[in-house]
Amino acid sequence: MSGLSTSSSTLSTTSASDATRGLLLGVAGVLMFALSIPMTRLAGGSDAAPQLDPAFVAFGRAAVAGLLSVAYLLLTGARRPRGREWGLLAFTAAGVVFGWPLLLGFAVRHVDAVHASVVSGVLPLATAVIGALALRQRPSLGFWACALAGLALVVGFAAWRGAGGVEMADGLLLGAVVCASAGYISGARLSQAFSAEQVICWVLVISLPVTVPLAVATRPLEPVAASAWWGFAYVSLVSMWIGFFAWYRGLALGGTLRVSQVQVMQPFLSMLFAVPLLGERLDAMTVVFAVAVLGVVWVGKRQPVN
């Protein structure tokens, strides 16, 4: 009896330890991803002071992370994809390697990182919507109400910042959100066959025949600020690679439902990082919109989906 009690106690302790580690890794992943928008803006600059071409930032970061992924897959002895897995990898790459970085990069040339952070705040809810549609689930009316409220808040914020009109950059940001959400869903399906780290590595590796030539073709021919290269290094090593390792491992250890809740803080953290990094201004109305979006996303993620 005492032996059984010891075994149960050990199992309980291990589970609690894994849950804590998973949550900490999830928080670390969110912190790393929260810097993605400000660092993308730092790398590409603005219309008034352009730095690296947004296309180079998108293709170059994937090329760097892809070459690192080759080494990782070889060292871990990962198996090769087969059958329909190739199609899912290609679809995931279209969303998270090409769609999100390209559209985000061009958008933040025209709007500041604080603006982009608020609009992209609906990403967790958009992922839930696309996931529900892809899996043919039946979300509750409360879920759809939150999804529509989130979209209305984002469009309202964009119109307010655009002095009564929604700018093209806002359309690019919403397109980036859709691309990332679709890529996350297909990537999640692949995680049933591969470890989460191997999924992002294979996605990056199969993209290399496209990303490397395009990165070379769009490389800067004129000098740019050192800060732009620091921003590029960050999105290449952290946003495109290391961040996924922490995030996916956190989800696996701590549970997707529990750990994913911390993602709702990502846009607010992005806004806070943009102030010291880029010297952007955080006004009261922007904070109000950001908090409203976060609130809707938080409530929406708790609505039943059957």
Results as ranks from 00 to 15, higher is better:
149 A>Y: 01
115 H>Y: 15
201 C>D: 11
187 G>F: 00
158 A>T: 10
183 G>Y: 09
132 A>I: 05
206 I>D: 08
204 L>Q: 14
201 C>I: 05
183 G>H: 08
193 A>P: 02
211 T>D: 12
117 S>I: 14
153 L>S: 13
199 V>M: 03
175 G>P: 14
146 C>A: 14
144 W>T: 00
185 I>T: 04
157 F>W: 02
163 A>N: 10
200 I>H: 01
170 D>L: 06
160 W>V: 11
179 C>K: 05
187 G>L: 07
169 A>Q: 13
167 E>M: 14
158 A>I: 05
173 L>D: 06
175 G>V: 04
165 G>Y: 10
190 L>Q: 04
148 L>I: 15
215 A>C: 12
172 L>I: 11
184 Y>A: 15
204 L>I: 04
177 V>H: 02
197 E>D: 14
158 A>G: 12
196 A>T: 09
201 C>G: 07
163 A>I: 02
180 A>W: 15
112 D>W: 13
120 S>A: 15
188 A>C: 02
130 I>W: 01
174 L>F: 12
137 Q>V: 01
170 D>C: 06
217 A>E: 13
122 V>N: 08
195 S>G: 15
167 E>F: 05
173 L>Q: 04
138 R>P: 10
157 F>L: 09
193 A>F: 12
155 V>K: 07
159 A>H: 11
148 L>T: 14
173 L>A: 10
122 V>K: 02
172 L>R: 07
202 W>Y: 09
212 V>G: 13
186 S>N: 06
185 I>L: 10
210 V>P: 15
177 V>D: 00
141 L>D: 01
181 S>T: 11
209 P>N: 09
151 L>Q: 01
118 V>D: 03
177 V>M: 11
147 A>I: 03
167 E>N: 11
156 G>E: 13
